[in-house]
Design a protein around this nucleic acid. Structure first.
Length: 581
RNA sequence: GGCUCCGUGGCCAAGUGGCUAAGGCAUCGGAUUGCAAAUCCGACAUCGGCGGUUCGAAUCCGCCCGGAGCCUCCA
């Protein structure tokens, strides 16, 4: 086998390679270019959160590599022909293509919600049949594969390196088993082409009508889009064997060249084991046979459809894509992540620190954090002015952030530096009284902006804080009404009517709305289902109270303010009713 | 049985041979606030156990205990 000559290593970036089990300096096949292939979904059903680990971390990898100056091409394949798709189509009485379309749509929606938008190519197996058949033909011609009763199998004994990725010896293989066993020369041989059964979708080939085996599509599509040897091949840790082992075998035997320089595998998600434990293999077999979908069987274990993992769309609806992304990036991508919704919520508390800082910056600068123009290149964001202590400190954080990312994309360590930067920025605001008298200090404002720009630069590399989250989860009427509530409270405070001011705040708390007093004004955050109704009742109550006190100025202010927000009030015998006007 | 991996404070989680073991959540003090919230300051771990290598180990080696993944479809 003749490996290509690789580029000079990157001065600092290292990537862990499953093949060598070591972190290696990063070198590319073509100077300045990176080809990445990630094994994507088999689209027989809706995605669950486990399907997003790979896309999110590889999205970060691509962003970071681009930031480091590489021209990156990222491919995620779609497996749209497979037993599971065929079964699903038969169950539902629709075509395999329909099943695929539906789930591809779902997959794309999920990616978009999580901010994964850097994928360059989405090849589908059914669109690459010519390439797949050509690759199989070549393997047959070269003697690595053989046809047998309409099937084609790869002969693993012809590949001296078979097992090198997963570190297995041939005699340790149990083989795929199943119906094809009798057609194979050896138990460990795997199918490249399967002859069509009655009623199955099929394609014409030199071996008759049939469809490709699972592994061959990745070899064919990666060659088509990235070449015979490319840089990074990713996927879940569970794909190492047999999928990637077989891909290497096919591609390297066919091309007599390495398939990939770096094999990068992400860890798997596990359901939180709070309700009990499910043990090793023997127990697992029983659990599936006897316990089935019992609560205990669902309580822990790896994420999979059979354990009831689904509902990613719902999860995104509940939590929001950025919180999920942040949750996933807190842990190193090769680790196992214990997943539960409370765990996401806990992580999200930290996210609020940043959102509050951004609002603070907006108040101070009269600008908008999300509109800051941050450097998009690693060399462009240096904070070189060591004479200003904040900038020096921020520069150190930035350096540590890059060090973490250089060390096999250590996003968890990188996020720690983001928190440090937030602390530095807040402290600078405090010490210079930037929300008070210091607001006139033009130089201080400029310095703050530099620190914030650094935060934007680095967080964007992680795909975080790309755009502003909605204040109230998207309830426009709540957004329109809340300023009136704030105004009433501010008026009460300046009149030293703390009873009213506190009553307003205390009643908002159970509605999920938090009030933070800042200088002359106040900020509010939170809100969700039921919040609007509660806020409206609060306003009606306040107005009633004002009328009882003959404080008609306030009661009129409430009615007029609501009218301006698009709400009509009607006084009835038992109280007031509100409606959208 | 074979092959991998993991075990760091109450919880989550970086760090894998050498300054005082990152960061987040929670908790407890303090500053600040009309009171809060937020923010800032401070407190809070010797790294599953035992043994070994080393001037020096959470970090390397051995054994033990506990947990996970793959070997069958799986991101």
């Amino acid at each position: 086998m003749t490996p290509p000559t690789l580029s000079e290593p990157h001065p600092s970036l290292h990537i862990y390679n499953t093949l060598s089990k070591k972190k290696e300096p990063f070198q590319t096949v073509k100077k300045g270019k990176v080809g990445i292939y990630l094994c994507g979904p088999t689209v027989y059903d809706k995605a669950h959160i486990g399907h997003m680990v790979g896309p999110v971390i590889f999205d970060c990898m691509k962003r970071y590599l681009v930031y480091c100056g590489y021209d990156v091409s990222w491919v995620v394949n779609i497996t749209d022909v497979d037993d599971k798709l065929i079964n699903k189509a038969n169950e539902r009485g629709i075509t395999m293509l329909d099943v695929a379309e539906e789930n591809i749509q779902d997959y794309n929606d999920n990616l978009a919600a999580l901010g994964v938008d850097t994928i360059d190519h989405f090849p589908r197996a059914t669109d690459c049949m010519d390439e797949i058949i050509a690759l199989i033909e070549s393997l047959v011609e070269q003697g690595f594969a053989y046809a047998s009763e309409g099937d084609v199998y790869f002969d693993v004994t012809k590949d001296a390196n078979y097992g090198k990725l997963s570190n297995r010896s041939l005699d340790a293989m149990q083989g795929e088993g199943g119906g094809g066993a009798s057609k194979k020369r050896g138990a460990a041989d795997f199918a490249l082409w399967k002859s069509a059964k009655e009623g199955e979708p099929s394609w014409e080939s030199p071996w008759g009508a049939g469809r490709p085996g699972w592994h061959i599509e990745c070899s064919a599509m990666s060659r088509k889009l990235l070449g015979e040897t490319f840089d990074i091949h990713g996927g879940g840790l569970d794909l190492v064997f047999p999928h990637h082992e077989n891909e290497i075998a096919q591609s390297e035997c066919c091309h007599n060249a390495p398939m990939v320089t770096y094999w990068a595998h992400n860890g798997l998600l596990r359901r939180d084991a709070a309700a009990g434990k499910i043990g090793g293999k023997s127990e697992r077999g029983e659990a599936e046979g006897v316990a089935g979908d019992s609560p205990e069987a669902q309580a822990s274990g790896k994420m999979s459809r059979s354990k009831g993992a689904g509902g990613l769309a719902d999860l995104i609806g509940n939590q929001g894509g950025e919180r999920i992304r942040f949750f996933l990036l807190r842990t190193h991508y090769r680790s196992t992540v214990m997943f539960s919704e409370p765990a996401i919520e806990e992580a999200a508390v930290g996210l609020e620190t940043f959102y509050r800082l951004f609002k603070r910056f907006n108040r101070i600068s009269k600008g908008e954090f999300y509109a800051l123009t941050a450097p998009t290149e690693r060399g462009g964001g240096m904070l070189t002015d060591d004479s200003i202590p904040v900038l020096k400190a921020a520069g150190v954080c930035r350096q540590k952030f890059l060090q973490a990312m250089d060390d096999d994309f250590n996003t968890g360590g990188a996020i720690a530096e983001l928190f440090e930067l937030a602390k530095i920025a807040n402290k600078y605001c405090d010490e210079n009284d930037l929300e008070g008298a210091g607001n006139a200090d033009v130089a201080a404002l400029a310095t703050l902006e530099l620190v914030m720009t650094s935060i934007k630069e680095l967080s964007n590399v992680l795909g975080l804080f790309l755009e502003a989250p909605k204040a109230s989860g998207g309830d426009d009427l709540l957004d329109a009404v809340m300023p009136l509530v704030i105004e009433l409270r501010t008026a009460a405070r300046s009149a030293k009517d703390f009873a009213t001011a506190d009553a307003i705040r205390d009643q908002l708390t159970p509605l999920g709305v938090a009030i933070e007093d800042r200088g002359g004004q106040a900020e509010w955050s939170g809100g969700g289902e039921g919040t609007l109704e509660g806020v409206m009742q609060l306003l009606i109550e306040l107005r009633q109270q004002a009328r009882e006190n003959k404080d008609f100025a306030t009661s009129d202010k409430i009615r007029d303010g609501l009218a301006a927000a698009g709400v009509k009030l009607e006084d009835r015998a038992g109280g007031a009713e509100w409606s959208r006007s």
